[in-house]
Every structure is written in C-alpha cells, then in structure tokens.
Amino acid sequence: MTAALSIQGLTKSFAGVRAIRDLSFEVPKGVTTALIGPNGAGKTTVFNLVSGVYGVDAGTITVNGVDVTHMPSRKRIGTGIARSFQNIRLMAHLTVLENMLVGQHVRNASLGALLTPYRLFPNHRWKVEAREALAESGLEAWADETVGALPYGVRKRIDLVRATLAGASLLMLDEPAAGLNPSETNALREHLKVLMGKGITLLVVEHDMHFVNSICQNVVVLNFGEKIAEGPLSKVRQDQKVREAYIGSEEA
C-alpha cells in the first residue's frame, strides 16, 4: 500500500542555515504519526515544505503516491493533503462560516461554483455542511462571528476545522493543543478520534506528550533538522539521543 506521505532525503537551508538535513520518513495510511522535537528543530518547516510554502533544496515529497516536490503549492491540496497553522492563519475580516467556505474551495473549484449566489439561500448546502462541521466540534455558536475578535482557543479549533473541509485524506496539524485548556484539549482529542474513525490519516506536531501518547501510534523525533529517532513513543522516550535533545525540557 502506498504511504499517505513519504519524505526522502529532504533538505532545506535558510540563508545558509540548514533547517532540515537529509530527512526521510513515512506516514503510512491510517497510522497517526507525531512529529516532535525541541523548539526550532524544524517541525513547522517540514509542514511548509510539504504544503509548498517553500521549495525544497533537495529530496522528494510524495503524497498518496503522487510526487508533489515541484508541484505548485496551490495544486497540492488536490492530492489529498491539508494543514493547520501553528500561529493560526484565519482570514480575520471573514466570519467563521466564510472561513469554512474558503476551506471547501478545492471541492468546489468550478466556474459555476465560483459564480453561484449561495448567500441568497439561507440553507445552501455549502453553509449547511460548514455548520455541521462546526457543530461536530461544538463551535456552531460562533459561525456568524467575525474571526478577528474570537478567543484564542476557539480560533485554534476553527483553523483545524477549516483544514478538514478540504476533504483531505491526510491532515497535518501544527501544535493543535497548544494554548488550549484541559477541557478544550479533551474536546480536541475526541474530535481527532472522530477524524481518524473517518479514515483520515493525521500527522501531528505537538509538545504535549500526554496528548501525543493518547492518539499517536508512531513518533518521529527531529533535532536540528535531523531525524534522531522513530518508533512508538514508549520506545523513543528511552532513546539516549532523544533524552539529550530534550535536556532542560520537562516533557520527555
């Protein structure tokens, strides 16, 4: 079976500083995988390379069997990969519901869809679908609010829900639990389990090891842009290199 994501020999420098060095790993379909490592290890950079925010210096990226290494960033979502953002990137002047509609774009990309006056219909299927997705995460009450003014935890979840609306089979989530309170974190965990139940593969960057432990079957550890360990969290935790990388950090 082809992997949901396969990365081979990935390398990327910023102004001469090597952020990612010869990185290779796979995310098999259905295997919830965590990408962990200390601050600045290069986790977000991996997401940026896979989604196409930056071009690679070397290496290949394959999504669901399709080589996306040199594919324009705009086209990559069509191969079944969507992402959320560590620093929350919602369109601040749009409402929550409108952000969801932008998230649906890839499945409604025809000229006809572009020019459909959906706002004239209170129960247009796009809006109904977006509201249902929000309701699944208990966010439907915020649907008509402008995003800019919402609390952090709510925006964090909305950023994730928007990513799910692309209908992707692989979701890359960048620190989805960061800044959430314990009850929000529990709700997030339940939400991710629902997504996994739907057959969606998750690649999660996360610092909260309890959270990682509760949902991830496989863990890839990065340090200074290199993979230093891979395997189940219980094994990886015993690894000497991992322990050294995390010295001073309370979690590992």
Binding site: S73, R74, K75, A82, R89, M91, V102, H105
Partner: peptide, 13 residues
C-alpha cells in the same frame, strides 16, 4: 486580500 498564502494553500488561484 486577507491572507494570500493561506488562500493559495487552500487551492484558490
């Protein structure tokens, strides 16, 4: 206008 990078990643031309 709000965020061209994210619009692009969501598939909008």
């Amino acid at each position: 206008k709000s965020d061209p990078t994210v619009a692009d990643l969501l598939g909008v031309s």
